[in-house]
Nucleic acid binder design. Sequence first.
DNA 1: AATATCCGCAACCGCTCCGAC
DNA 2: CGTCGGAGCGGTTGCGGATAT
Length: 304
Amino acid sequence: MGRPPCCDKTNVKRGLWTPEEDAKILAYVSNHGIGNWTLVPKKAGLNRCGKSCRLRWTNYLRPDLKHDNFTPQEEELIINLHAAIGSRWSLIAKRLPGRTDNDVKNYWNTKLRKKLMNMGIDPVTHKPVSQVLSDLGSINGLPSTGNQIEPSNPMVEQTQEEQTQFWENQVQYQQVLASECVQPNVVFSEAASSSSSSSSSNLTQLSSPQQSYNCHNSQITPPCSSSFDWSDFLHGDSIMWSEMQQCDPQRVMSSSEAFGAVACGASMCEGRSNSGDSFVDGILDRDSEIRAAFPELLDDAFDY
DNA sequence: AATATCCGCAACCGCTCCGAC
DNA sequence: CGTCGGAGCGGTTGCGGATAT
């Protein structure tokens, strides 16, 4: 048995909002402020679900929202944040004043994802598609040679030499990450991009690892009470986990670029709490450190 | 000019989280 | 401690306009 619906869906209006309905919401909020959304439809004289009212307000009517196009700076920030934390749209949106999670999500799905694919970059892992296929080939026991997909962005004129350098940099960077037993892009973007409703069935359930993971050589406490589950980060990614296990576990525990960021720089409770900023900060700090350590690799490899 | 297809965006759905009781 | 219900989140859907045929 699921939960009962939040309202009588058969008797509430759905679909696009009219200017009159918008005006009612605006008038109500300006007079009463934001409170219990389930009461808003009744008090504001709307035949809408309270949830629908809240969405209309947060995604469209809020006075601090920007309605113009995304700037190149915003675009770059979205890509970088997605590479770091995956599809945590609300966290990404918090870094973009005037943008909502819905804005960011739509912009990603309609523009940025295609842009990356045109550049030969897998928008999920932020790796070159050729490498993703290569990884898949090796995972499935298939030959990993051939079928190399080259960058196909017609907007970018690259010489053969530049393309070769690009892929070599990508491979070098991934090797660096692999040597640290860490694949931050995989960890965060794949995990976070998993569907909330569809992918839990093939999770690799792992024992709570926080008790055995060190953070910069000091034992850490479970960051988010007993509710923490590695599946949050390793949704369906048993492959990555097994790769990590093949490395020296001590290295996994102590160095762990990405996990360090998560465990030390932020709380695992990030998702729905104010600690989301520190969560992102932690990851970005570690990202900056890696970039600083390998500028020649990353400047080329992630110049979207 | 009519129709088909594509694309972007607003809105909805189903789920989890979390505080109140 | 368990239950309930509101809030918030990410994924998906579907409408409407733009573009192609």
